Simulated scan of single mutants.
Amino acid sequence: MTQRFGSAGNLRRIAALATAVLATTVLSAGCGTGDASEGAGPAPSPSADPKAALLAAVPDEKDPAFRFSTVEGTEKFDGLVDPAARGVELTVSEKDPEFTMGMTFRVIEDDIWVRVKITGMPGLQEAMKLPKRWMLLDRTKLDDASEVPVYQNADPANTAAVIRTAETVEDRGNGTYGGFADLTANADIRENFSTVDVAALGEAAKKVPFTAVVGPDGNLTSLTLDVPAAGKTKAMKLVAKYYDFGKAPKLTAPTGSQVQKAPASAYEMLNG
């Protein structure tokens, strides 16, 4: 157990995965969580321009704070976006037979904090010299600048970029839309799908079915891509969900006894 931690087994893999999601805004694979049906009033009426209507539902800088949730394989991601604060928060967790480790990253403007919580094995967090408070990170002490989390926009799963690759979008009624995404459209799109072997998909990568749902409040609540099997990779669903618009708490910088500067042990964990 100690050797796997010392060699940055699960812990460093979780840290790298978390920072990569924040830095590149990946649309993750899985079933997603969260209530996508919140809101009052009737479903949106059919639009004369379904693609434009769907893009208009994607979160932007004018939206209130909201939550998002994705799953990639066995890794679950829960997050919160606060456009007004130019902030994002992401929580990931890893379960071991003997303990569970959770990491939460909070980014506001250029500042970044991380909080670690290890349960199931008393004394392990103390042995690793990892405080339980928020730790303010110095970006210059993080080795890989490309993996340093930043706030990019109010669409953490990059759903708008996926929708834009569709030639046409069909309004199926009751707030549901459908179309075909082109995962080969540009380099940014291809890089967003680390779990998908775009090359192995061949021509099928240019026409991947997607379904999107817009809630009664006019906000995008889910986007699902049905990726076919390719090579050794089984068919999968790529899903992103947005919810709790206006109900999620606003993000603020930790203060007082809630925070401290990150110790050397935190950088050792993140840098491996």
Rank of each mutant, 00 (worst) to 15 (best):
N10G: 15
R13Q: 12
A18T: 11
T19N: 09
L27P: 00
S28D: 07
G30H: 08
S47G: 10
A56N: 04
D63P: 04
A65D: 00
F66H: 10
E72F: 01
T74S: 13
F77N: 06
G79I: 08
G79D: 09
L80D: 05
D82R: 01
D82Y: 03
E89D: 01
T91K: 04
T91C: 04
T91R: 03
T91H: 02
S93K: 05
P97M: 14
M101P: 01
M103R: 07
M103D: 00
R115E: 02
G120Y: 09
P122L: 05
K129H: 13
P131A: 09
S146I: 03
S146N: 03
Q152D: 05
N153T: 11
A160Q: 11
A161F: 01
E167S: 10
D171V: 15
G179N: 04
F180I: 14
F180R: 07
F180G: 05
D182C: 05
D182V: 07
L183I: 13
L183W: 05
T184M: 00
A185D: 06
N186G: 04
I189H: 03
E191H: 15
E191C: 02
D197N: 15
D197V: 04
A200V: 13
G202A: 13
G215Q: 07
D217W: 05
G218N: 08
Y242D: 04
P249W: 07
L251S: 15
P263M: 00
G272L: 01
